Simulated scan of single mutants.
Amino acid sequence: MKVSIRQQDIARHLGVSLGTVSQALRNSPQVSSEMRLEVQRAATELGYIYRPRENQQTDMTNLAFISGAQPNNFFYTGVLQGIEESCRERNITLHYSSLKDISQPDLQRYRANDGLLVAGYVDQRMVRELKNLGLPMVLVDTNLSHLGLERIEIENFGSTYQAVEYLAAAGHRNIAFLCAPPPSRFSSFDNRRGGYFSAMSDLGLEAFDIHGLTDPVLKTSEQVITRWLEQHGKPAFTALVCCNDEAAIGALLAFEHHGIQVPQDISIIGFDDIEMAQVVRPALTTFHVDRNFLGSLAVNQLVERFQQPDKPVASILLETSFVERASTRRLI
């Protein structure tokens, strides 16, 4: 009796995902030409006859979340939670990997997934290698627009611009910015720095940045501010905008250790609204990012890209919301 060959058999034969096989047989541009030829050649050898059906869709079953951030990163744990919840609702198996653990030979194992979510700091060469696998891919919180990939970004530039406007309206004229040295490993940090400098210029204020942050940001932030205070003494600036909440909390601890009170002497604004921002004293004024929604949105975009591989590439900008707490005060 003749055995009927299915797309699953081709996928198993080549060690790739069912979604890759389906897209290759439909000549989808989302799959590389080399992969399309390999799938179509295997289909011929195995005796598979492709019969297109109208409105054909396949379900995504395996998804890889690849992060350049450290596993205990306060921000991405919230994003991952949203991804996990969305995958459970869709019966998608989620695989987690740290980008720094991926070597060249490891890349091929990702071919068994139906799609990739890549978040945080990413090396462009590695992203190009992942793109060459021909799988649907969505970048989360990273701006590599020149690669032509679906991406979801946060309103970084506009938020720090708003932070400077808020502080200036409260009477602050000497406003500093704390971040990693430009260009940083995180494109989001560079965009936040850009928003700060743009607002300071537009308001006719002199910009001043303190940099040197590395991972872990919370620890190095405290060290950087401590070193700066030891070199320069009590700061002339009355407000500090930080690239994220960890940087803000580290700065707050350093100021406290040197007898500088927040917000009486210096107002501080963070970014992300991680859980610690609410419990630290004084509670941190910051920009709230709905990390759970960000993760869920990323899965939705990836599934849509998987089901509609020929649709135009989209970039989504997720707005933040300003949360005023006790770490800032008015001077006028």
Results as ranks from 00 to 15, higher is better:
residue 124 Q to S: 13
residue 33 S to T: 14
residue 296 S to C: 04
residue 84 E to M: 10
residue 279 V to D: 15
residue 121 Y to I: 14
residue 76 Y to A: 00
residue 48 Y to I: 09
residue 63 L to D: 03
residue 104 Q to V: 14
residue 115 G to M: 05
residue 48 Y to V: 07
residue 205 L to C: 08
residue 157 F to R: 13
residue 269 I to C: 04
residue 3 V to N: 15
residue 324 E to M: 11
residue 122 V to Q: 14
residue 266 I to N: 00
residue 30 Q to C: 06
residue 209 D to C: 03
residue 43 A to G: 12
residue 146 H to V: 09
residue 237 F to A: 01
residue 99 L to S: 13
residue 293 F to G: 07
residue 280 V to C: 14
residue 142 T to P: 06
residue 85 E to F: 03
residue 268 I to K: 02
residue 35 M to D: 10
residue 284 L to Q: 07
residue 188 S to K: 07
residue 234 K to D: 10
residue 220 T to I: 05
residue 189 F to H: 09
residue 100 K to Y: 15
residue 296 S to I: 00
residue 295 G to Y: 04
residue 21 V to F: 09
residue 108 Q to M: 15
residue 101 D to W: 08
residue 272 D to S: 02
residue 131 K to A: 08
residue 190 D to H: 04
residue 237 F to D: 01
residue 75 F to D: 00
residue 252 L to H: 08
residue 220 T to M: 03
residue 327 S to K: 00
residue 318 L to A: 07
residue 20 T to W: 05
residue 201 S to N: 13
residue 266 I to G: 00
residue 187 S to P: 07
residue 321 S to V: 09
residue 328 T to A: 06
residue 95 H to T: 13
residue 269 I to P: 05
residue 111 R to F: 13
residue 78 G to D: 02
residue 304 E to K: 11
residue 237 F to R: 00
residue 60 M to Y: 01
residue 4 S to K: 15
residue 18 L to G: 10
residue 233 G to N: 06
residue 141 D to I: 01
residue 17 S to N: 06
residue 143 N to P: 09
residue 83 I to S: 05
residue 190 D to R: 02
residue 206 E to V: 12
residue 159 S to P: 06
residue 132 N to A: 15
residue 314 A to F: 07
residue 25 L to Y: 04
residue 165 E to N: 15
residue 254 A to F: 02
residue 164 V to Y: 01
residue 245 D to T: 01
residue 5 I to Y: 10
residue 229 L to E: 05
residue 328 T to V: 10
residue 224 V to P: 03
residue 73 N to G: 04
residue 192 R to C: 05
residue 1 M to E: 13
residue 272 D to E: 04
residue 139 L to V: 04
residue 225 I to R: 00
residue 44 T to I: 15
residue 194 G to F: 09
residue 320 T to I: 05
residue 292 N to S: 11
residue 253 L to C: 13
residue 203 L to M: 06
residue 74 F to S: 13
residue 150 E to K: 08
residue 81 Q to N: 11
residue 284 L to Y: 07
residue 228 W to G: 06
residue 328 T to R: 03
residue 119 A to R: 05
residue 137 M to W: 05
residue 249 I to F: 08
residue 240 L to K: 00
residue 275 E to L: 12
residue 295 G to V: 02
residue 40 Q to N: 15
residue 37 L to Y: 14
residue 152 I to Q: 06
residue 290 D to E: 04
residue 291 R to W: 01
residue 209 D to E: 11
residue 8 Q to Y: 14
residue 278 Q to V: 14
residue 271 F to G: 01
residue 219 K to L: 12
residue 28 S to K: 03
residue 224 V to Y: 03
residue 332 I to G: 15
residue 312 P to L: 01
residue 305 R to Q: 10
residue 331 L to D: 01
residue 190 D to F: 01
residue 39 V to F: 09
residue 289 V to F: 02
residue 190 D to N: 08
residue 35 M to Y: 11
residue 77 T to Q: 13
residue 75 F to P: 01
residue 216 P to F: 02
residue 255 F to V: 02
residue 259 G to V: 05
residue 288 H to N: 08
residue 24 A to D: 08
residue 139 L to P: 07
residue 133 L to P: 09
residue 279 V to H: 15
residue 89 E to N: 04
residue 200 M to E: 05
residue 115 G to C: 05
residue 57 Q to I: 07
residue 303 V to L: 01
residue 168 A to G: 07
residue 27 N to Y: 08
residue 265 D to W: 02
residue 315 S to D: 09
residue 240 L to P: 03
residue 183 P to A: 05
residue 146 H to N: 12
residue 311 K to E: 09
residue 47 G to T: 10
residue 182 P to V: 02
residue 56 Q to L: 10
